[in-house]
């Protein structure tokens, strides 16, 4: 186990039943994630990456294996006691609440429950977060009036308000256009730097994984193919699959773009 390990995923196995037959969604997956690290989980659809995310969040329980947070076993802990936030591709905002209420609601409940802060504190903190994410002027708007990028900022602020130690992203940008994606990448990287939040980022987009990650975990069919820094994966792909799915795809993209840019 590494020195500064935040989250340790040990030998996680999960099987699903489909039409009577069992198949593995995750087959003995193990990884240690460092505090403050940005880890992307990269793989095609159906490789098990979303299942892994849901198990980390506590929305699913694994058939076998353990999850340790700061060395403490949280395999069976409810999602709200894992100190993590989750951001989905389809935002899942509370449609009937304003942006401000979306962000402050959970914190208000928590403050009331634990008598840890006043309503004024929560309001001030909400305003501060909205400012940091550049959506202060949207505070009174309802989600139906926002663009996709704005909604995703609200969703991020909504998880940040509880000061999570880990943030999980489930393909958060797949529904956004390219300009918004690039803006949002910067927003997320900023948060990582500023709050030191550990981030686990599910994606099928090679370029996104390479642009943002400290390390990338490439998955294929319920198993990990390779975990390494972006540079190492390009230089030393672990097998044919990693080479074709990651390296070749990236290269094709670069070639097609550079051909146009250089006339």
């Amino acid at each position: 186990m590494m020195e500064n390990c935040k989250l340790s995923i040990r030998n996680i196995t999960k099987q699903y039943k489909n039409a009577g037959a069992r198949f593995a969604a995750l087959d003995g997956v193990s990884v240690d994630i460092e505090a403050g690290e940005f880890l992307s989980v990269l793989g095609p659809s159906g490789c098990g990456k979303t299942t892994l995310l849901r198990i980390i969040a506590g929305l699913l329980s694994p058939d076998e294996g353990q999850i340790l947070l700061d060395g403490k076993d949280i395999t069976n802990a409810p999602p709200s006691e894992r100190s993590l936030g989750i951001v989905f591709q389809n935002y899942a905002l509370f449609e009937n609440m304003t942006v401000f209420d979306n962000v402050s609601y959970a914190a208000k409940l928590k403050a009331k429950r634990e008598k840890s802060a006043t309503v004024a504190d929560v309001k001030a903190r909400t305003a501060e977060l909205l400012g940091e994410l550049g959506i202060a002027d949207l505070a009174k708007k309802y989600p139906s009036a926002l663009s996709g990028g704005q909604m995703q900022r609200v969703a991020i602020a909504r998880t940040l308000i509880l000061n999570p130690e880990i943030m999980l992203f489930d393909e958060p940008m797949s529904a956004l256009d390219i300009a918004t994606r690039i803006q949002l990448r910067a927003v997320i990287k900023n948060i990582q730097k500023k709050f030191g939040t550990t981030m686990i980022y599910i994606t099928h987009d090679q370029e996104e994984a390479f642009a943002m990650s400290d390390r990338i975990m490439v998955m294929e069919k319920a198993k990990i193919s390779q975990i390494d820094t972006p540079r190492a994966i390009v230089s030393y792909p672990a097998n044919e699959y990693v080479k074709s799915f990651v390296v070749d795809n990236l290269r094709a993209k670069i070639e097609s773009v550079s051909a146009v840019l250089e006339y």
């Binding site: 506590g58 409810p78 989750i86 905002l93 959970a106 409940l109 909504r158």
Partner: peptide
Amino acid sequence: MNENLEAVGSTLGIGRLR
């Protein structure tokens, strides 16, 4: 309605009834 609302609620500590 969004299929992830329950997941959001449970990670944010908002109970089912609420």
